[in-house]
Design a protein around this nucleic acid. Structure first.
Length: 378
DNA sequence: CATTCCCGCCAAACG
DNA sequence: CGTTTGGCGGGAATG
């Protein structure tokens, strides 16, 4: 008798055996998935933040996180107060391309002329790529308040998340590194060349948030370094990205295991075949292997998202509390996206130039995104 | 023990 | 002034 296992925070079982918390159910990744399922459908034009918060049953704060990172990739666009407009995945290619060009430009600029100069990293999410309407974007509000916060051009705003996301993505797009660990990323784009300390810690925390969201979108996937078993993320980007450049070697290692359904915070447990031990030391001659590639009009992204695949989740339930707790299982499984995306053959020709890359990258990044934050009056 | 990362306080940025 | 946005870090859950 008395085999009650629970008894913790269980005040009156409201007719449901809710799980004892379960952190995964509240992860940003899952929330993002639900968010997408809710809005990635034709007909959706604008999204109300509070509306989303209510429907998803989370605090407003969390919505901001998701929305910010999605905006960085072009899926959403800030329309105004409390309102975002849905751009969809069709807008992603363009956004990514922009980021790529942007990042490449910065690199070349720095790498080029030895002069210092630099300054400016230029990033901004004010991507007015909308070629629709002339809207004057009432954003650039120059003159930040009269007589206020004049000193120190440290932008008090847009200091993270949005920019961090873009920089993080740029890192993948502009480098040959296909796999990056959050730790490295944090160190590289902490937006400065300071010594790591607590700043990095915080940065990493943010990076985790971003990574979770991007994983949810399947833009990246959690893996681990070929050699080291350190957890890292691999860029998947769109799908039909034949990569390019290194056509030599690597012969398509047969169908890859690009499987949908991984996400969530942990992924994998799959035992990677361990990369062969063909590790050849990279020549210390080429630091940073920038992805020098021409434009590439790889876009060809899908057409509207037709993912009407609701699964077990998000029934747009009540506010909170009294959660019906629908099943409470992983709701990962949206083949809807699978149809949208196509399997890609990514020949990871990554050897192990991490050390070099990291250092090199650090160098130019320090200059490029170095302190000297552009004081664009945003 | 180390890694992952949620929660939410509380301050800038608007209206 | 109130409200919307969202840095930032503690510290709990997880591996």
């Amino acid at each position: 008798m008395s085999s009650n296992w629970a008894g913790y925070t269980l005040s009156v079982d409201s007719g449901s055996k809710d799980a004892p918390y379960c952190r995964k159910q509240k992860s940003l990744g899952l929330l993002c998935t639900n968010f997408l399922c809710l809005y990635n459908r034709e007909g959706v034009e604008t999204i109300g933040l509070d509306d989303a918060a209510t429907r998803l049953g989370v605090e407003r704060r969390r919505i901001y996180d998701i929305v910010n990172v999605l905006e960085s990739v072009g899926i959403l666009a800030r329309k105004g107060k409390n309102r975002y407009s849905w751009k969809g995945f069709v807008a992603v290619p363009k956004a990514l391309d922009d980021l790529k060009k942007d990042g490449l430009r910065d690199i070349g600029q720095t790498a080029d002329s030895g002069s210092e100069k630099v300054s400016d990293d230029e990033d901004e999410m004010c991507s007015d790529m909308n070629n629709l309407s002339q809207n004057e974007k009432s954003d650039s509000n120059s003159v930040p308040k009269s007589g206020s916060q004049p000193k120190l051009g440290e932008n008090r705003k847009e200091k993270s998340l949005g920019l961090l996301t873009q920089n993080f993505v740029k890192l993948f797009l502009c480098t040959e590194m296909n796999t990056i660990s959050l730790d490295e990323a944090a160190k590289i784009l902490l937006g400065n060349g300071n010594q790591a300390s607590m700043t990095t810690r915080t940065k990493v925390r943010r990076l985790y948030d971003i990574a979770n969201v991007l994983s949810s979108i399947n833009f990246i996937e959690k893996t681990q370094h070929p050699e080291t078993r350190k957890p890292a993320f691999r860029w998947l980007g769109l799908n039909g990205k034949p990569d390019n450049g290194t056509k030599d070697s690597i012969v398509a290692s047969e169908s890859n295991k690009r499987l949908f359904g991984t996400d969530l915070t942990n992924t994998t447990a799959k035992r990677m075949k361990t990369m062969d031990n063909a590790k050849q030391i990279r020549k210390p001659q080429n630091p940073i292997r920038v992805k020098q590639e021409t434009e590439t009009d790889d876009e060809r992204t899908q057409s509207a998202g037709n993912s009407y695949q609701f699964g077990p989740f998000a029934p747009a339930n009540v506010p909170k509390i009294a959660t019906s707790q629908n099943d409470g299982k992983e709701a990962i499984d949206w083949e809807s996206f699978a149809s949208t995306y196509k399997p890609q053959y990514h020949n990871q020709a990554l050897k192990d130039l991490f050390s070099h890359y990291v250092e090199a990258l650090k160098s130019w990044y320090s200059e490029v995104a170095g302190k000297n934050p552009i004081q664009l009056m945003s």
